[in-house]
C-alpha cells in the first residue's frame, strides 16, 4: 500500500534520514522502533509531506506522492496521528473530528461521514460524551483517543501513529494498542512508531529498527521481540547501539 524508497531527509545540513526503505501492506501493522532522535518522527513527517525529502521517493499504491504538499497527501489517503497529539485545543471535540473530513475526496466518501462518526464514537465512547467540549479540556489519554479518532475520520488507507502511548498510564497503553490491533481488520495499512518497543512489537506483524536515521534491522514482530540485540537495547533499559563498531556508519 505504501512504500518508501531510499528516503533521505535533512534539516539544513543535518542529515536525519539516510536511505530509508520500508513498506506497509493493507491489513498489516508495521512498527518502527528506535531511540530518541533516531528519526522516527522525521520519517512519518516526510511520508506525510510536512517535510520534503532530499532524495528518494514515497509510493502510495505504486503512485509517487513525495513532493506533494501535505494536504494533498492527506487527501490521497495517508493519515498521520502526530507526535504530541496536536489536537485543536480551542475547537470542540466534534469540530476536531469533522475537520479531518477535509481530507475526504469524492461524493461517496462524504456520504459516509455520519456512519464513520458513529464508528469512532463506538470505539471511544468518552468522545461522544465530550463532543461539545473544547479539545483542550480533555485529559491526556482522552486527547490521544481524539487524535486517533481524528486520524480515522479522514477515512485513510494508511494510518500512521507517532508514539500514541507516550505519556499514557500503562492501562491506557494496553487499551490504545488493543484499538490499533482491531483497526488492522478494517482495510488499513498501519505504521506505528513507538519508543515503547515491547508494546508495539507485540501487536506488529513486522518491524523495522531505526538507528541514527538508518534501518539497521527488520523482521517479523515476534522475531524482533525475541532478537537478542533488540532485547538488549530496546526492551530492557535502552543502552548502546546495535550498530556499534559497524564501519559503514
Amino acid at each position: 500500500m505504501i512504500r518508501t524508497e531510499n528516503l533521505c531527509t535533512s534539516y539544513g545540513y543535518v542529515e536525519v534520514l539516510k536511505n530509508v526503505s520500508i513498506e506497509v501492506k493493507t491489513n498489516e501493522i508495521v512498527a518502527i522502533i528506535g531511540a530518541n532522535g533516531a528519526g522516527k518522527s522525521t520519517l512519518l513527517r516526510t511520508i506525510s509531506g510536512l517535510v520534503k525529502p532530499r532524495e528518494g521517493k514515497v509510493y502510495l499504491e505504486s503512485q509517487a506522492v513525495s513532493g506533494h504538499p501535505a494536504y494533498r497527501i492527506a487527501r490521497s489517503g495517508v493519515s498521520l496521528v502526530p507526535e504530541g497529539r496536536q489536537i485543536f485545543a480551542s475547537l470542540s471535540v466534534l469540530d476536531n473530528l469533522m475537520l479531518a473530513t477535509n481530507a475526504r475526496r469524492g461524493k461517496e466518501a462524504r456520504l459516509t461521514i455520519d456512519e464513520d462518526l458513529e464508528r469512532v464514537f463506538t470505539l471511544f465512547p468518552v468522545l461522544r460524551e465530550r463532543k461539545g467540549q473544547h479539545g483542550g479540556t480533555l485529559s491526556g489519554g482522552q486527547q490521544q483517543m481524539l487524535a486517533i479518532a481524528r486520524g480515522l475520520m479522514s477515512r485513510p488507507k494508511v494510518l500512521m501513529l507517532d508514539e500514541p502511548s507516550l505519556g499514557l498510564a500503562p492501562i491506557l497503553v494496553d487499551e490504545v494498542m488493543k484499538v490499533i490491533q482491531d483497526l488492522r481488520k478494517q482495510n488499513l495499512a498501519i505504521l506505528l512508531v513507538e519508543q515503547n518497543a515491547a508494546a508495539a512489537l507485540q501487536i506488529a506483524d513486522r518491524g523495522y529498527v531505526l538507528e541514527t536515521g538508518r534501518v539497521v534491522l527488520q523482521g517479523g514482530g515476534k522475531e524482533l521481540l525475541n532478537n537478542e540485540s533488540v532485547k538488549d537495547h530496546y526492551l530492557g533499559s535502552a543502552a548502546f547501539s546495535i550498530n556499534q563498531g559497524n564501519p559503514n556508519r
Binding site: L50, P69, A74, F88, S90, D95, L99, N102, A103, S154
Partner: peptide
C-alpha cells in the same frame, strides 16, 4: 467548515495540513 478551517490553521498550520486543509 471554512471558518473552522481558518481557526485550525490559526492554531496549528501543520496539523491543519494533516487534516487535508490547503
Amino acid at each position: 467548515s471554512l471558518g473552522k478551517a481558518m481557526l485550525a490553521t490559526a492554531e496549528n498550520p501543520d496539523a491543519a495540513a494533516l487534516m487535508g486543509i490547503n
